Simulated scan of single mutants.
Amino acid sequence: MNADGSLSISVDRSNLNYLLMQPYSFYACYHLPTDSLRICLVDSVLRQYEHGGQVWTEQRSVTISFKEEMTLDRLCQVAELAQSGARSLRDRRIVQISANPNDLPRTILESVPEVHVPTDPRQAAMLLQQLYDTNADDVISASFDRFAAALGVDHDFMGIAYMSEINLGMAGRSQLPKRIEDAIAFFQLRLSAGGHMPGSLHYTIGNAYSAIADDEKAKIGELLTSTAELLEVGVPLIETALALELEAGVCACAAPAQRGLEA
Rank of each mutant, 00 (worst) to 15 (best):
K219I: 11
S8E: 14
C253I: 04
L72Q: 12
V45S: 00
A252S: 10
Q258W: 02
Q130N: 13
A252D: 04
L81T: 01
M70H: 01
A255V: 14
Y203M: 10
L223P: 01
A149C: 14
I205S: 02
M163H: 07
C29I: 02
P113R: 09
R173D: 05
A82F: 13
G159A: 10
L109Q: 12
Y24C: 08
F186C: 04
Y132L: 02
D133W: 08
H196P: 00
E50F: 06
M126A: 13
V95G: 04
A3V: 12
P121C: 11
A254L: 15
L224W: 01
S6T: 15
I205T: 05
E222P: 01
L131F: 12
M70N: 03
I160P: 00
K217S: 01
G194P: 07
P101H: 13
K219Y: 04
L231I: 07
C29S: 11
I180S: 00
Q129L: 13
Q22P: 00
L81Y: 01
T107W: 04
L89C: 08
N167D: 02
C40I: 09
S111H: 13
E58C: 09
K217P: 04
C251M: 11
R13V: 07
V55M: 09
I39D: 01
N102I: 10
A142C: 10
S88M: 11
